[in-house]
Design a binder for these strands. Structure first.
Lengths: 244, 244
DNA sequence: CGTGCACTTGACAGCTGTCAATGCCGGTGG
DNA sequence: CCACCGGCATTGACAGCTGTCAAGTGCACG
């Protein structure tokens, strides 16, 4: 098990001290395994904490009365899942394991102790929440203003960038455990249309599909399909509270 | 000027102590006025703080190279604007005054001092950020999965609920200072279609338009058009840090 | 070797975008 | 006070993207 996992998202903003690292390590002290397709938390459940994804892929989704659903976020190792529901009476999001996963449940109380004892780390939590807002805002731009083809291209680039770097025959590639229905729920389109858009990207030579693997055959061109501005995280902001 | 403004969003989670109130009051100590349609902050600007909206309406938007834009949030008095960009090198959002507005710029350093000195209030800031994520998630659901008519209905109900309660001839109503182009940028549709959807809601008797005023003629039915689950904020969570 | 799930493809319908013209209204200058 | 102007709202006609329905294919798994 990789003990760096719970640090990544926060260490992006500033190097962590030993005290801060210890507090984060403590969050993933106790882990649970869930099998592929199992539901980790249902929407409407009472909220008493968040979930740290240690290994595998997971989805947070929210459903409509009619049975439709929207994928809110695709979670990769290191992600904190279910945090938005901390602000609510009952959970807004269903959390589902896409692959077999390892998860650590973090009681709200534990977060609270970090806020009480480690101000700088608390502010990093705050910044991570703002970072997630930016990601949602970017998705809003895609869903609101870009055709499905660009949304799919954006998703593939996003996933490639978040995963450990990997190549296949010299070309950037990654294994995609999501089916086209899940991708459709992410992009706000229907399965059939996901398939059409995959075909378009493939026919244009931007990607190659080999089983569950996606090869970014023309990475630069694929990126240029996505019309979003580049964003860089703030690093070592001068205004952060002093390190403990 | 209403001095309760900066408290509302945070007091929703817990009653504030005098110390916490004083810290919040300090955030809006110095205010600036901007005229209708003026830009308060441009995307790509360096980020050194956030903006508290004291009076009036404002918009945060993000633009594409081609000139299209997406409205990310419609801000009403009491909102903190531009916080997501705290996580970034350069601002993701343009902030524009819709009406004449009163704004207080809050240096990131000031937020930082709250994190250093007032743990419970810091956690309320964290929860407010999570609340904003829920709002963005709900918008994702609308943009991804619901037709424009429901999106518009949802927007009208959302605005009515956030504004001071008001009636016109016994019916719930509010004044809407946004034009149809701005509403289109919020819903991810084009002006012409905004107009069509207004017509549909009006023809069905759900709303009445009188100049800039929107009357929710059949409020309950209008609400039922929107397919989103009800959400309630958590209040007095047992796990919050102790009050100072 | 059969079964079930996911993926593919085609045909057609419907929602939304695009283009264009008209009307309305408040602000401005004569 | 009135004519003009510009921005916004409104409407119609048509195109294009995406949804819907249906059928067929391929592959993993028992």
């Amino acid at each position: 098990m990789n003990f760096d996992i719970p640090f990544r998202r926060f260490a992006a903003f500033a190097d962590l001290t030993a005290l801060e690292e210890a507090a984060l390590r403590d969050l993933s002290a106790v882990t649970t395994n869930f099998r592929r397709n199992h539901i980790i938390r249902y929407e409407q459940d009472p909220v008493d904490g968040v979930y740290l994804l240690v290994n595998g892929w997971a989805l947070t989704t929210a459903g409509f009365a009619g049975g439709e659903r929207q994928v809110l976020k695709i979670h990769l190792p290191g992600d904190i899942m279910g945090a938005p529901s901390l602000a609510l009476d009952r959970a807004a999001e269903t959390i589902t394991a896409v692959t077999d996963v390892v998860v650590s449940k973090v009681a709200a109380q534990k977060l609270s102790r970090i806020f009480a004892e480690l101000p700088r780390l608390s502010m990093l939590f705050f910044l991570a929440a703002q970072e997630e807002r930016v990601e949602l805002m970017d998705r809003l731009m895609i869903l609101g203003r870009r055709p499905a083809k660009e949304g799919l291209a954006g998703l593939l680039v996003y996933l490639y960038d978040r995963l450990p770097r990997h190549f296949q025959r010299g070309l950037p590639a990654f294994e995609l455990p999501l089916n086209q229905s899940q991708i459709g729920d992410f992009l706000g389109i229907h399965t059939v249309h996901v398939n059409r858009m995959f075909r378009v990207l493939e026919d244009e030579g931007l990607i190659v599909r080999e089983g569950r693997w996606i090869v970014l055959a023309r990475e630069a061109d694929l990126r240029s399909v996505v019309g979003l501005p580049d964003r860089r995280l703030v690093r070592d902001a001068s205004w952060l509270p002093p390190a403990p």
